Computed example of a mutant assay.
Amino acid sequence: MFLAVAEGGTVRAAAEALEVNHATIIRGIGRLEERLETKLFDKPSSGYRLTDAGTDIVDLARQMSMASSQLEAKIFGRDQGVSGPLRLTLPVSFATDLLMPTLVKFRAAYPDIALEIIGSGAVINLGNREADVALRVVVGDRTPPENLYGTRLCEFHTGHYAHRNLLTDRSPPAAWLLGADEVVPSGWQPGSGVKMATTPIRFAEMRSQFEAARAGMGITLLPCFLGDADPDLVRVPAGPITRAGEIWLLTHADTRQTKRVRLLCDHIRVAMRGFAGRLAGRIEGGDTSLR
């Protein structure tokens, strides 16, 4: 609790990080200060600020937290049971639009495994057991850190998609549908006379972009497996299909031999290799060029 407050700056942030009531955090900090017979935080209205004594011990607290996580990982790594908690982190679209049937089959085969699915694009720390298995898109030539065990599964491609009605001669100008950090594509223009609006529309997350494209709002960049699977969407003429990275299945070196980790990895590995063509943007009987 001390470390969560020190890193979050407020009791609220610490309570959210630890998923406990804020009053529990306040009582915990109070007990620690009483035990150490020193004040660890000043408490101005803007948040909690470390005192000199608190600053002196915060690095030791981080070391204790890391050692505790390593201890848990070592014990978890010896567990050969097919029951108990198991955390999987993966991009939201992989969970909702690609792997959910696989996870349903896994759940049916091993009902005593308490699977927790963390749909997120954030890099979650496997070393401190925030997750046990991670499916990640790795950009460039990077490889997993030394403390992680990784399997490269397949390549991941993206393309530009729009509702098929936007590609007709009478359609209104299409907007570029962009994520928060995306820019209007340069170096190519939509083919077949597609008219483009001068002002783009921005979204905070990909699912909204996807639904906006399906509704006919404009052109957006999507994973090929998502855009190609929707009957209302088509690839924009002249738009490149781009290799965005590689998909890796990752586990921690200390926990990868845990039986339920191995079982989940086996299910995901088989499923993702079956999806390799879709993930690479290959369409049966259609355009298979990659650029």
Rank of each mutant, 00 (worst) to 15 (best):
A197M: 03
A13M: 12
W188V: 07
S65T: 12
A14P: 07
F2V: 05
S69I: 05
L167D: 02
G30V: 00
R269Y: 04
A134K: 09
L221F: 14
A180E: 11
D169M: 12
G77I: 09
L3I: 02
G9S: 03
E130D: 12
V194H: 04
P145H: 02
P101I: 01
E146N: 12
L99D: 02
Y161T: 00
A61N: 13
R136N: 06
G277P: 07
A276Q: 04
V104L: 15
I118H: 07
D59W: 05
R269H: 10
L115P: 14
A253F: 12
E72V: 15
A253C: 14
I25P: 08
L263Y: 04
T255W: 02
D97T: 05
D266L: 11
A276G: 04
M196A: 03
A13R: 15
R136H: 07
L250G: 01
T10R: 09
E146Y: 06
N21Y: 05
A174I: 03
S65Q: 15
S120K: 07
T198L: 14
L233G: 03
P101K: 03
R170G: 14
P101S: 05
R12E: 14
L98M: 10
M64I: 13
D59Y: 10
G30N: 09
H157K: 03
P190F: 02
A14D: 00
L135Y: 05
V123P: 06
V58F: 02
E37S: 15
E155G: 15
R273S: 02
K195E: 08
L250W: 01
R27K: 10
R273M: 10
N21W: 05
V5Q: 04
F106M: 05
A238L: 15
D266H: 10
A213L: 04
G150K: 01
T55D: 14
P240S: 03
G9M: 05
V58M: 01
G81A: 13
G281D: 02
T242M: 06
A67L: 12
L60R: 13
D228P: 07
G285C: 06
P237Q: 06
A13K: 11
A271P: 07
L50I: 03
V11D: 06
S208I: 04
L264D: 06
R27P: 09
V261I: 06
R282F: 15
E205M: 09
L3K: 05
L86N: 00
R107P: 03
T251I: 02
T158A: 09
Q70T: 13
K259A: 12
A108W: 08
W188N: 06
F225L: 00
R214K: 15
H22S: 14
G286Y: 05
H22L: 11
Q80R: 13
I247E: 00
R35I: 08
I29Y: 08
R49A: 11
V236Y: 02
R235H: 13
L50Q: 01
Q257T: 14
G119D: 01
G77T: 05
I247P: 04
L178H: 07
I268D: 01
V261E: 01
R282K: 11
I29W: 06
A244E: 00
G218W: 02
G218F: 04
F2A: 04
A271G: 06
H163G: 07
A95Q: 11
T89I: 11
H252G: 11
K74Q: 13
A131V: 02
W188K: 07
R260S: 00
F41Y: 06
V11F: 08
G191V: 13
T251M: 08
